[in-house]
């Protein structure tokens, strides 16, 4: 156990990963030297310097906050609306039939199409909320629906015979059935919302957004900035994904504890 935290253990655990990253960075550096034009391919060292320069400015953090808040809001709305719609559809056939074409359309529609359409209806600064929402919501809806459908019918019959209360039924039977499907949808959706959100900002170019920075970088051929902002997006997306998955794992554990407490209380 101690070895895992020692230098030997660390190298054993992360050695290949570090080597792989170094390999690709080296290849990137060599390619940029070979191409010889920073506009076509900026060197990783130059990108790192640009990134450090960006991090030092207040504008950088404000930009991140602007985009993150909106994309996360869209994501959270998608979790809520997708779950509620799935529950309604599960309990009512007409609602299910009514929602089905809408979900199919949203899923099949290219992100760019609905972003351009949405530009006509809403302010550019809120585009990323909508894009993030529309990307994640059908996913949540479909997975939660599957989880509800997969609920053990025999356990529901048992609950009916014993006249178990609705809240106990939700805790004991529905949540354990839906949770794995929900977690799976969230883990996919969390990456998608950033892609869709930033794409929306690049098209809508709201002032003070990451999308605007990317657009400017492209417009003025600032390749170093383009790379630097892309790295920033990847880092934020990873941090967000880890945070969300960590919260879900906590919820999973908390759900177990709550179940224990609930049954103890009742």
């Amino acid at each position: 156990m101690k070895d895992k935290y020692g230098l030997k253990g660390f190298l054993k655990h992360y050695g290949f990963k570090i080597l792989a990253v170094c390999f690709w960075l080296l290849l990137w550096e060599l390619l940029s030297i070979w191409i010889g034009h920073e506009i076509l391919l900026a060197a990783p060292t130059a990108v790192l310097v640009t990134l450090i320069g960006l991090v030092g400015s207040l504008d950088f953090w404000q930009t991140i906050l602007f985009s993150s808040l909106r994309i996360i809001l869209g994501f959270l709305l998608a979790l809520f609306v997708g779950s509620i719609l799935a529950i309604c559809a599960h309990n009512s056939r007409p609602i299910k039939e009514l929602i089905a074409p809408l979900m199919k359309t949203i899923q099949a529609m290219p992100v760019a199409s609905f972003i351009i359409l949405a530009l006509i209806w809403i302010k550019a600064k809120n585009l990323s909320v909508l894009a993030s929402f529309l990307m994640v919501m059908p996913l949540i809806y479909s997975n939660v629906s599957q989880g509800l459908k997969a609920t053990d019918e025999k356990l529901l019959q048992m609950a009916k015979v014993f006249q178990i209360s609705r809240s106990k039924k939700i805790i004991a039977i529905y949540i354990p059935s839906v949770l794995p499907y929900f977690i799976s949808a969230v883990s996919v959706g969390v990456g998608l919302c950033w892609k869709a959100g930033i794409a929306a900002e690049v098209i809508g170019i709201p002032t003070g957004s990451i999308g605007e920075k990317l657009y400017e970088a492209k417009l003025y051929l600032m390749t170093k900035e383009l790379f630097a902002w892309t790295i920033v997006i990847i880092i934020i997306s990873i941090i967000f994904e880890k945070a969300v998955m960590m919260m879900l794992q906590l919820f999973k554990k908390d759900n177990e504890t709550q179940k224990q407490r609930k049954t103890a209380e009742e």
Binding site: K154, Q157, V161
Partner: peptide, 14 residues
């Protein structure tokens, strides 16, 4: 009514 079903019908992870 209370019952014992043929397949027990317990909450498996509890």
């Amino acid at each position: 009514i209370t019952a014992v079903f043929q397949e027990d019908r317990l909450i498996e992870h509890w």
